[in-house]
């Protein structure tokens, strides 16, 4: 793992892995969404709206997974000082925020026909909205850190502290009364019918590959920017 902290080795791997992850993720997500739209039966209680599951759940998991990636990479940066770990944390922020926003929007669209409302200020929805604001804060902080030369430890600490919200999101439907249903999938157990579970898992896998592909593309962009800036600084110092 530490070997890939070398930017040259990372780039060698990322050059072929980025298109592979994006292409395979697109195919898997497209198949899962097609099956979810056309092949699975309507639910007894939710009717046709159950199909929103195949886009809502993967984006919810990746919204939370994105922050766990930020926290893990931030910890790796603080402990081992890997420069690529700080870059990986920055790269995970935008796709994490985008998937959290999609989760909130699709959840709201799903809530209207099933709950009779677009939004309620309950534990699950509110903690997920807080996650979106945490992403905005992290993106602003890490951009300012890169631009203004502020210590990268500050966004790393923010990334670690923000992870407190993840178990709160996860347990919110158990701790507080909520319109949102309790967890359907737990460790080694599922309350979801097999007809929905297969396409759901395929959708989660497809969106996860897309997430990983976008993170690699963002890392390559951030690394190229940093390398260009370093070379420009060298040119300027040699000219002076």
């Amino acid at each position: 793992m530490h070997g890939f902290a070398n930017p040259r080795r990372f780039l060698k791997l990322a050059r072929w892995l980025t298109p592979l992850l994006l292409a395979s993720g697109t195919v898997m997500a497209a198949i899962a969404l097609y099956v979810g739209l056309t092949r699975v039966p309507p639910d007894r209680l939710m009717g046709e709206t159950v199909r929103i599951l195949f886009i809502h759940v993967p984006t919810a998991w990746l919204g939370m997974g994105g922050w766990m990636a930020i926290a893990g990479a931030s910890l790796a940066f603080l402990v081992w000082r890997h420069p690529l770990a700080a870059l990986a944390a920055r790269a995970a922020a935008v796709p994490g925020a985008v998937f959290t926003a999609i989760c909130l929007a699709t959840g709201s669209i799903w809530g209207r026909p099933t709950w009779g409302t677009w939004w309620v200020w309950d534990g699950r929805l509110t903690s997920m909205l807080i996650l979106l604001f945490l992403y905005f804060g992290y993106i602003a902080l890490s951009d300012a850190s890169a631009r203004e030369g502020v210590s990268p430890k500050i966004p790393a600490l923010f990334g670690l502290l923000g992870a407190i919200n993840i178990p709160i999101i996860n347990r919110s439907v158990v701790w507080w009364n909520s319109l949102h249903q309790p967890p359907s999938i737990t460790m080694g157990n599922s309350a979801i019918d097999a007809a929905y579970l297969g396409p759901l898992m395929l959708s989660v896998a497809g969106f996860s590959l897309l997430f990983a592909g976008v993170v690699l593309a963002r890392m390559r962009a951030l690394l190229a920017d940093a390398q260009a800036e370093a070379r420009l600084r060298r040119m300027a110092s040699e000219a002076a």
Binding site: L22, E48, T49, R51, P95, I109
Partner: peptide
């Protein structure tokens, strides 16, 4: 209508991000 709105939004935003 709700299903199509959710799919259209999710797919469009994901593709734009990629």
């Amino acid at each position: 209508d709700f299903v199509i709105a959710a799919y259209a939004l999710g797919i469009a935003v994901t593709l734009a991000m990629i």
